[in-house]
Each structure stands twice: as structure tokens, then as C-alpha cells.
Design a protein around this nucleic acid. Structure first.
Lengths: 296, 296
DNA sequence: CGGGGCCTTGACAGTTGTCAAAATTGGTGG
DNA sequence: CCACCAATTTTGACAACTGTCAAGGCCCCG
């Protein structure tokens, strides 16, 4: 990503700039142009408008720090420029549920538009660099470029589609399948960022994965051990290596909750992993299902 | 709702009007102004702009008919004017998952903005009347009124917040609590529409409720029987009467998946229903939990 | 080197899915 | 008007899955 070191003369609200610059004085304040952001998002906006030169400030966060909290007044959307985070919802009794694990290129904050107040919170899991996009400013830019405006709506709508997919995963897959799907998606996302899709590091705890998938941390751990024993992945704590991506991807054992209203009778066997041979070492825990697969 | 019988002279694209009028010739075509729609949504837009007089066409649907389908090109958002519907997602094998049960005043179609193509589909459960709002036209109106534009974003964002709540329900509540919560929400929504909040008719099957809640139809049926036996509700097929709304509302038995990272130790007993006396008749099925409550 | 998270694994119990059958409802046709 | 059929709902018995509780191992950090 091409950073733009802040140069005050380029910016309209210079007083603000000075203030913020003071806060981040250790390393200076970074800015990105709208064009940079479009690149980060993979957008191709065709416009010669000067709006592409509008600058947006970066903010850095340490692990555990909040990008925003529940109840905080909504002012800006955020784009993740680097780092890994979690989005969590807190219920009345202080229980926390993980909604998502955003990473580079992801949008944060769209939950706040609805009531001008955030209904969930985002926490950094690693060092993070986030671009702040004041909402009113974004709307103003949208007015000068229809294509950009449409892109904003698309971004927000994309969040809805993503959540739909989560709902389906949560409601209709068994624990092994949820974990397999989670790892598969993580791998793909890492790949999309230019990292290896075969080997990566999980940035969150088993408890957080469980919360995200609607499972306990023990069930997550066991599911991973099963996949390891089946030779589909290799797990060492948070270090994940994917040995058979296709196998991982094709695990979608269904729950009873997936109502089958389709005309087809429930005849054909579900598509499952063609795992062949479990490695002898390590976990002895195999669900019946994986045992069956391993035996086949 | 104040309908406006189509009067062609009021409308700009008269050719379209004639065409559509022909399609619905049985009962004539209805139109609503933007002001009508704001009223339906409970919005209070302050503007004298003539845009409030823009007219939008209604479409009627019979049970089982699709408002839109997966893969269909996105062209419009829809507001439900009357009737009950379901939003469903179809996976590769033809399994269907219910995502929501929209009713009067709800927004439909926001999933389509993302890729100019719908990723789920909406089906009428009863006779329905739906207002069609072509998206490009809505954007154009937004340009002439900032307040309206903001309202559009709020509507879409609200969908995100609603889905967050669904994810939490699905991931962190036990079956009884999910069903109780579902009924509680249904009651509130009926009340918000001016119907009785104590007694209402479910428009969907047990299977559809189960699909929505990530449960099987049998589990839904059993949960309702338990609540009935506990004297909290009265169930007769799809006829629901709520005897103790507070009790129903306060059932939130947690799953293990709700990671408790809060500082408070897990000491205090969860808030549960103070059900006193099960009626002697009917269901003999009680979960341990309800038994415990009933005994207390 | 010690301590505190975090992860793994085991044993067991509670919850929920599966399969099956009976009861209820609504609609259709004789 | 009644009988019958199909769809939906309820209920039961059982098995499978996942949560609960507990113990031990691993790793990082002080």
C-alpha cells in the first residue's frame, strides 16, 4: 500500500491534523487517498474527479485495544489496512459473542449507521493499522461521483450477504463441518492477501473461534484434532497447515435444521471428504463420521 | 395505509404505467407516495421537497409466490405493505435455510445491492402487498434530500444489526430459549403493528421456524409443548397465546458457546422464567430445566 | 525457573437429532 | 354432508452429538 506521509498543506482541516499528529507523534501520522482505499478494496472507480485525492487518516492499535465500543457515537467507517481483529457483541450479562474476524481490506463500523451509535465493538487481535473514513465526508464524496456512491452501498450490502452466509453455517452444519469451513475460509482469505493458503497462523483463541461458530472451545479443539488425525490438516497450537484443501472444502455435513423442501428425494449421499489415511500419531479422538471416512 | 389509486396523469413514465396496469387489471394498480412509505417505515423526514410526491407501485403476491429469486438481477428494494413472508437461502444441494420472516414495514432486497444480483429469495407465506422501489430512483431522490439519503443507509444498516442479533440468538441460546425468544419477538412485532401481543397466528410451519432457529421441527414442537406445560404460553397448532410475557422474555438459558470473558466470575444464577404451575393437561414432555422451574 | 494462559484430551451427562407412529387439520370429491 | 387424503403437528424411544468438568501439557513472559 502506498502511504502518504501527512503534509499539512494538502489538507483542508489543518488544525485537526496538527492535533492528531501530536497524538501519534512517535511515528508520524499516515494518510491514504481515496484512490489508495479503492485499490485496497479492489474497487475500480472510473472518475477523474479530484475526490480521488481526498485524504483519510490512519490510526494504529495495539492488541486488546478497541477500534470502537458498544454505545459509542457513530462517526466514521473504517477500513483495515493491516492486522487482525475481532468484532464482538456483548449481551446484558457480559457474555461476549464473536461476530467476525476482520482483516486487511475489510469494512468496520457499518453497524453504527442504523442508530448513530455502535451496537457492537471491534477489538484488535494484533497490531493494526486502520483507515478512518468520516461518514459525512464519505457521503459528500458520493455526491460528486455516482459510481462511488454505488460502491458504498455495495460495501454495506456485502456485509449483509456475509452475515447470511454465517447464519447458514451456524444453523446447518455440524461441529466438524463448521470448523472445517472456518479454516477453509481463513485459508482463502489469507491467500487473497497474498499469503500462503496452505499454512497460516490463527490470531484468535479456541474460545474465540468457538464463540464465532457457536461451539465450545473444547469442541473446536476436538474438531481440529479430528481433521488432523484424518490427515486433512496439521495443527500445532495456532499453527495451521492445510494438507488437502479440497477435502477440507468439501466437508459439509448437514444438521437436521436445514429443511429440505426441495423436490429431490433425500437419496444421494452428501458430498463429504475423501480422506484416506489417518496418520498414526497424536489425537486418538475421532468422531464416527471421520472414523468412517478414514476407514473407507 | 393510504393507497393512491393509479392516476396516469400524475405519473411521469406513463407507458410503463399502462403496461403494469394491464398486468394487474383485475383490481387496478396501487401506488404510494414517498411520504406514505416514510409513514409506513415510521420515518419523519423533514423536507418540503416535491420528492415526497414521487409514486411507487405496489405488487400483490399469493402464497408461495416469489418476490425475487436467487440469481435474479437486482433492480429494486421492496417495502412490505401487508402480509407475511419468508427470506430463504438455498445451498448447493437444494437445502433451504430461512433467514427471516419479514412483515409489514420491513425492507426486502438489500442483499442484492452487493453484486447487482440477489443472493437469497423471498417467498410470500400469505397474500402480500409489496411496494416496489427501483434502486436508481431511490438514489436519485436521495440526491435531492440529504435526510432521505441518510435514512436509506440507516435502513440497510438496520438489517446488519438485526442479523447480528440473530447470530447471537442462534449461537448462544438453548433450544427452549431460542423458541421462547422467537415467540417473544413475534409477539412484539405483532403488537407494533397494532395487533394483539397476547394472541396471534403463526404463518409459518414448524419446519420453517426450525430452519430459522437452527433446530429440527420436532425440537421446535417440543419446546413449544414445554412452554405450554409450564403455563407460559398456550399452543394450539399455529395459534399462540402468551400467558406470561415477562416469563417468556426472561428465558435466556445460555449455551456454552457464549464465551464469558467478562471480569465477573460465573457466580450468579442466570435469569430464568419464574414459571409456577404447569397445567395438568396435554404435553408430558418437559426438559429437566422446565421441570426444575415448574417444581420451584 | 515459576506462573498463568491456552490448548488438548478424557469421562460423563444433558441436549438435540433421527426415526417412527399417531393425532389434528384442511381441503377435495363422492 | 361425509369420507378420505395429504400435509402438518405432536409425541415417544433411542442414538449421536456436544457441552461440562477435570486434569495434564505446552508455551510465553516475567
Amino acid at each position: 500500500m502506498s502511504y502518504n506521509e501527512a503534509s499539512i498543506t494538502e489538507v483542508s482541516h489543518s488544525n485537526k491534523t496538527i492535533m492528531r499528529r501530536a497524538m501519534h507523534s512517535e511515528r508520524g501520522t499516515y494518510w491514504s487517498s481515496l484512490a489508495d482505499i479503492c485499490r485496497l478494496l479492489g474497487l475500480n472507480i472510473n472518475t477523474q474527479a479530484q475526490s480521488l485525492e481526498a485524504l483519510f487518516q490512519h490510526r494504529r492499535f495495539r492488541p486488546e485495544q478497541h477500534i470502537y465500543q458498544v454505545g459509542q457515537t457513530f462517526e466514521a467507517l473504517y477500513i483495515v489496512n493491516s492486522g487482525f481483529l475481532k468484532t464482538v457483541m456483548i449481551d446484558g450479562e457480559g457474555n461476549e459473542r464473536v461476530l467476525n474476524f476482520p482483516m486487511k481490506g475489510d469494512l468496520l463500523g457499518s453497524d453504527g449507521i442504523s442508530k448513530d451509535q455502535h451496537s457492537c465493538e471491534v477489538v484488535a487481535l494484533t497490531d493494526c493499522d486502520v483507515i478512518v473514513i468520516p461518514f459525512h465526508q464519505l457521503l459528500a464524496l458520493g455526491h460528486s461521483c455516482n459510481e462511488l456512491e454505488h460502491a458504498i452501498y455495495r460495501l454495506v450490502s456485502h456485509e449483509i450477504v456475509r452475515e447470511h452466509a454465517n447464519l447458514v453455517t451456524l444453523g446447518s452444519l455440524h461441529s466438524d463441518a463448521r470448523v472445517a469451513h472456518f479454516l477453509s475460509v481463513q485459508a482463502q482469505r489469507h491467500a487473497a492477501l497474498g499469503f500462503s493458503s496452505r499454512s497460516f497462523l490463527l490470531r484468535m483463541t479456541r474460545r474465540e473461534i468457538g464463540s464465532y461458530l457457536g461451539l465450545t472451545l473444547e469442541t473446536v479443539s476436538r474438531a481440529m484434532s479430528s481433521l488432523d488425525a484424518a490427515g486433512i490438516i496439521s495443527v500445532n497450537q495456532r499453527d495451521i497447515e492445510i494438507l488437502k484443501p479440497e477435502a477440507l472444502h468439501s466437508i459439509n455435513r448437514l444438521n437436521g435444521a436445514s429443511a429440505q423442501n426441495s423436490p429431490f428425494p433425500k437419496s444421494d449421499k452428501p458430498i463429504t471428504a475423501p480422506a484416506k489415511q489417518g496418520r498414526p500419531g497424536k489425537a486418538k479422538v475421532l468422531t464416527h463420521w471421520v472414523e468412517q471416512r478414514v476407514a473407507a
